[in-house]
Design a binder for these strands. Structure first.
Length: 447
RNA sequence: CGGGGAGUAGCUCAGCCUGGUAGAGCACCACGUUCGGGACGUGGGGGCCGGAGGUUCGAAUCCUCUCUCCCCGACCA
């Protein structure tokens, strides 16, 4: 993409409503624009990141054996009456009346809708287990939206639902999702710690929240800091091997990690050496629940078992805040100059900066690099603007692409270009060809 | 929902107290000079001063109502 043609409305000054780094940087980098309280338009740059995060989540869900589908955003009130949550959910639910006076709502979550479909279509225990998910916009009419996309009213969520014949099966599904989450967050460059959590209005009795430690988080958390050294990508999980999957969950729940609702001071002090006690804020980026037959019973989601008797299916639900993750990643990875994207979620792989747009030698070298990198499958944002170069560097810092290839007339005389990592780990001057090779090699590595 | 704050140019804000017909910096457009890290000069465009009502010869400014947004708290799959 040529920056001269890209729709990227960056801001030099910070809009006053943005208090925390991720919100400020997302507005300044031209990723989002606020539409109304807690509701945002995703501009091309932000949309690219959103899609990349979504894709990682999708790949890890598929890999764990979940199947993607798509449910509507608008739901009929009736299914919520059946589960008993129409009244329970309260004013957070956005209720809508259509022209025929029918009661509808903008879905805050999808347990009811999917359970209804499932109940209508599945008859036999032979059809279990199943894990079904979708990635869809949700709406919760928060009293006080804040922190940009971290606590929006409209937000993109991946929600998965598992259906099993018995408790043991439900736990197997729970564990698969647990491992899938560990992998997904790790691939995005996040240290997300699974913490024992309260189950809230969804109900249930087995639940973990996946928390990214950050001072701007909204959750108060307590955990063993040893978790930060765990590597969720160290081994390839075999999702057909229940024991192996269970072992991974055991390892990632072996140390103390709880949200404030579950926290017990004495146990924390007993189980965690003082030097490793982390007590602070965290951002919830995902949550997994087991809730048994809470929805399957009232909604009649039953199957006929091997003995010919009907059994209500055992369910769990598993959410990832896809849009919230964009903010969480920035909170976890930025500096004074702007965002520092982890490679796997960066909107582009390389910022190609032409220091002297209009100069034949520079233009030629840039176009050559641009073509080769793209041919090798890299996403390149080519800054070909005929401006003061300083502006380009300011924007490049702000947008925070992992690599920066800088081509100017002075270096070109000796066939030298600058190649830099945004995170500061690499800064070299090499020939244009060497720089291109290095970028292509880096892109072929793990994401 | 309780407490606090703010709505004036795309952004940040001044002007309001003490009423007299709209300002600055940045951004944008044109031209020129520049160009190795957020340039300089000259010229230019851009405003229902959140909305409605009232007071007044006259309202961005005073009064009333209202809408929106933000912050703290409570709430939060």
């Amino acid at each position: 993409m040529r920056l001269s043609q890209f729709y990227l409305p960056t801001l030099k000054e910070t809009p006053k409503e943005a208090e925390i780094a991720s919100h400020r940087l997302m507005l300044r980098a031209g990723m989002i624009r606020q539409s109304s309280a807690g509701i945002y338009t995703w501009l091309p740059l932000g949309h690219r990141v959103l899609r990349r995060i979504e894709q990682i989540v999708r790949e890890e869900q598929d890999r764990a054996g979940a199947q993607e589908m798509l449910m509507p955003t608008i739901q009929p009130a009736d299914v919520w009456r059946k589960s008993g949550r129409y009244d329970d959910y309260g004013p957070e639910m956005l209720r809508i009346i259509d022209r025929h006076e029918r009661e509808l709502l903008y879905g805050p979550t999808n347990e009811e809708l999917l359970t209804e479909v499932f109940a209508a279509t599945v008859r036999s225990y032979r059809d279990l287990p199943k894990m079904l998910y979708h990635i869809q916009w949700k709406f919760r009419d928060e009293v006080r939206p804040r922190f940009g996309v971290m606590r929006g009213r409209e937000f993109l969520m991946k929600d998965c639902y598992s259906f099993d014949l018995d408790y043991e099966g439900a736990v197997r599904s729970y564990n698969k999702m647990f491992v899938s989450y560990l992998r997904a967050f790790a691939r995005m460059g996040l240290k997300a710690i699974p913490m024992e959590a309260a189950t809230g209005p969804i109900g249930g009795d087995l639940s973990h929240e996946f928390i990214v430690l950050a001072p701007t988080g909204e959750s108060e958390v307590f955990c063993d800091s040893e978790f930060l050294s765990f590597d969720a990508l160290a081994q390839e999980p075999d999702y057909d091997d229940d024991a192996a999957i269970s072992a991974i969950r055991d390892r990632f729940t072996s140390l103390y990690a709880r949200t404030d609702e579950k926290h017990v001071g004495e146990e924390f002090e007993q189980q965690v050496p003082e030097a490793r006690r982390y007590q602070g804020r965290g951002i919830e980026v995902g949550q997994v629940f087991y809730f048994g037959t809470k929805y399957s019973k009232p909604m009649g989601a039953e199957v006929v078992g091997p003995d010919g008797k009907s059994i209500a299916v055992e369910m769990g639900s598993y959410g990832i805040g896809v849009s919230r993750l964009v903010g969480a990643i920035i909170e976890a990875s930025h500096d004074d100059g702007g965002i520092i994207w982890p490679d796997a979620v960066a909107p582009f792989d390389v910022a190609l900066i032409n220091l002297r747009a209009g100069d034949d030698a520079c233009d030629d070298a840039c176009v050559r690099a641009y073509g080769k990198l793209r041919a090798a499958g890299l996403d390149v944002l080519y800054d070909d603007r005929d401006d003061r170069p300083g502006v380009k560097f300011a924007d490049a810092d702000l947008i925070g692409l992992p690599w920066r290839l800088i081509i100017g007339p002075r270096g070109l005389k000796e066939d030298k270009v600058e190649l830099k990592r945004r995170d500061g780990t690499v800064a070299v001057e090499v020939s244009l060809e060497a720089a291109i090779d290095r970028l292509i090699t880096a892109a072929g590595g793990p994401d």
